[in-house]
Every structure is written in C-alpha cells, then in structure tokens.
Write a protein that binds this DNA or RNA. Sequence first.
DNA 1: GGTTAATTTTAGAGATGTCTAAATTCGTAG
DNA 2: CTACGAATTTAGACATCTCTAAAATTAACC
Lengths: 220, 220
Amino acid sequence: MGVNLTHSMQDYLKTIYMLTADHTRVPTTRIAQTLNVQPASVTSMIKKLADCHLVDHQSYHGVALTESGRSAALEMIRHHRLLETYLSTALGYDWADVHEEADRLEHYISEEFEDRIASLLGNPLYDPHGDPIPGRDGVLPPTPRLCLLDVPAPATVVIRRVDSSQRDALVFLSTRGITIGATCTVVQKASSYVVIDLAPTSKTIRLPNAIGQRIFVDRV
Amino acid sequence: MGVNLTHSMQDYLKTIYMLTADHTRVPTTRIAQTLNVQPASVTSMIKKLADCHLVDHQSYHGVALTESGRSAALEMIRHHRLLETYLSTALGYDWADVHEEADRLEHYISEEFEDRIASLLGNPLYDPHGDPIPGRDGVLPPTPRLCLLDVPAPATVVIRRVDSSQRDALVFLSTRGITIGATCTVVQKASSYVVIDLAPTSKTIRLPNAIGQRIFVDRV
DNA sequence: GGTTAATTTTAGAGATGTCTAAATTCGTAG
DNA sequence: CTACGAATTTAGACATCTCTAAAATTAACC
C-alpha cells in the first residue's frame, strides 16, 4: 500500500499483470503494444514503478510485478470487473459496451463505491464475461478454462466464460442470445465451425471456430 | 460541441459558472481561491480557455463564460448532480458524502452512462441537496430561494434545498433527520436560532442561524 | 492628477508522461 | 567467437498544468 498511484501507473501495472499469465517476465515491447505507446515511454514509466518497488526491472530482461505491484493491479482489476458487472446488471449495458466505460471509471471510484456496488451485487465472483473478480483480499476465483472446441461432439455444457478482448465477438454472441450461465448442447463439430443448440429455446447456432475458440464451458 | 476538454478545463468552466451567480465577470482571484490554485495558474488556464472560445477574457477585468463555455459547464453540473442523486438514491450514500465522489466521477462518465442513470432515476429535476439538475438541453429548473430564516414565526414549510457547500452542516442536518421534501413547522424565532417541528414525528429541533441560513423552503 | 496598494499578468522553472532519434545490449547464426 | 539484427535504453524535446518571483495595470485616495 503506501504509495499514491497515478492513472498511468495503474494502467501499466494492470497491463503487466494481464501479460504475466504465461511469462514470468514481460518484455518491454509487449507492454508498449498493449498500451499503444512507444517502447521508450515504457522504459521510463517502468523506471518510476521500479523506484516505487511496484515492479522488478532487470535492464534488457523484462519486468515482473512485485507483491505490492500485484496487489495494486488486482485492485484495479477488481474495480474494472465489479464496474462491468454493475453496468451490466444494474444499468442494463450490453456486455460489449461495459469494457470501455469501466476502463475509464476504474481509476476514480472510491473504496466506498467499490464496497457498495459489490454488496449490492451480492459480492459476485464473476463479471459479465465470466472473468473472475478478485476479492478485496486479492484472491481470484478459478478461471473457467475448458474450451468449447475441446469438447467432443455430443455433449451438454454450461457457458462459463467468453474472451472479452474482441468486441466483435461479444456483439456476435450477444445478438445470438448467448450468455454466461446458458446451457447448450454441442451438436456437431466440423473442421471450421461448431454447431450448438441453445437450451431454453433449442435454437441452433453455428459458431465459426474463431468464435468457439473464445468460449469456455463446464461439462454437465 | 467542437473542442475536447481536459479535466482541468472542465473544472475551471464549472467554477466560473458557479461564481457567475451574482457577478457579470469573475475576477481571477476568486477562481484561484475556489480551485486552491495560484492566480498565475488561473491566468494561464484562462488564456487557453479563451483560445477555445469558451470564455471571454479582458485583461485585468475578469472573465465570463461564452455560450459554449456555459454549455460545457452545465454539462459538468448535470453530470455532477445526476451522480449525486444516483449515489444517494441507488447506492445509499449519505448526502454529505456524495459530493466528493461525484466530483471525481463527473469528468469520466459517458453520455450513455448519464442517460441511463437519468432515466433510471426518472429524469429528476433536483439533486439530494435540492440543487436543480440541468436538462440535456441545459435548461435549469427553478432554484428554491426562500430562506428558512425569512419565514415569520408560526408557519408550515417544505424543505426544498440545503446549501451543500459545507459538509459539517450537511452532517448536522442528516443526523437530525432533516431531508429534502420534509414538511416542518417554524415554531419560534430567536435572534440566534430557529426552532422547528419536523412533520412525521413532530420532533422539535433547534437550528442555529448559521444552519437555518442554509435551508431554503416553500411555504405551504 | 499622482502615489500607492491590491490585483493581475508575464517570465521562467518543475513535474508528469509522452515522443523521436540515437546509442547500447542481447542473442544467435554463421 | 564474431558480427548482425532485434530489443531496449538513453538523451533530448514537447505538451500540460502547476508554481514562484517579478513586472504591469488598475483603482482609489488624497
């Protein structure tokens, strides 16, 4: 805790956290790409973050979050995902539109605001895309990881998570009535698409692999 | 509306609008006082606002909003007061706590967010302190101006507005159950205080003039 | 009307976070 | 094991918004 973080510092920490999924250390260039910023800008910001002991920077060998950097990142992610959930549940936003609004607001809400929307929502564990919401203590619920494309053909599954990084895909899915928690049956698997039956209506939907790839499920 | 306004420009425009109530032109120093900034900083920001045709600046003779400056200020005030209303009504904030949160968020909510909370609240005309909320068209409902202290002793009134600029006074009033829309009877007027009976419970409250001065009512 | 006190503006500097261009370092391919 | 290309950092500049200190203007008093 301790340090006051600027908007930019928070963005960098969040980005580094997101990019740390598989890599131990994140190369400068990836941060630059993600934030639409020049690599030189990343270097100078990383210096500042390292001065505050939020990241560990080894010159020419990438960057990793320290424990307090990770906490700060998770706090931003908690804000972001709680806001997304709130915008969706309480204000009726489409799940394709929540990201942009949450990305702006996450830096400016108070702990009181965070607590109030969290308890109003019943302290949810997942956001509208199925991404896990860190607790105030920084603990993340498990991330649904079973890809729809990896389920063999005749099977019933519940949709648990959708990759939220591609707005187009979110629009595609929401216009077809696909939501988190929906039950569906995988009817047919072809080389370039999957056919599913959506539970309540038995509506049949053909999903291109590019989309199916971004859907994660639980088997029932 | 043409120009993209920075957070700071919005703050200056809002402040100038607020200070324009009685003065035609606002002196630099008052802006500086209000924003907790040095007069020199005000001059340089005002130059920028004048370059964008948001204010009319005559050197050494103060500043006034142009029509588009006024619009921008009213849009910020609309955001602010809608947020205050939303925080109070939907999230259960005490009316003493809404200002600080709204002041941060007002710069970052989208038009969609504005529209959604406005219609969820039923397009309210007044915020939790009774201050008028400008419409999307910039039209302000009338401001309740009859001061409680100007009402002769035996009279029944409805509380319509409370000066929100002094947090202490807001806390004083809310702990005593005084709210906008409450009916009360002015029982006794002394030189330094007023005694009122609060309607639902007939609870008797003695208000120092410093407080009564900040309460505005309608006669019934 | 001239002097003075208060207000306002100018001038120049600092902090933040970005950029471009040039220099440095790394890793690997030959 | 050297040299090249890619990744990264350094150096220096720019934009924004603030500050302090000094200069300019105003208004008002005698």
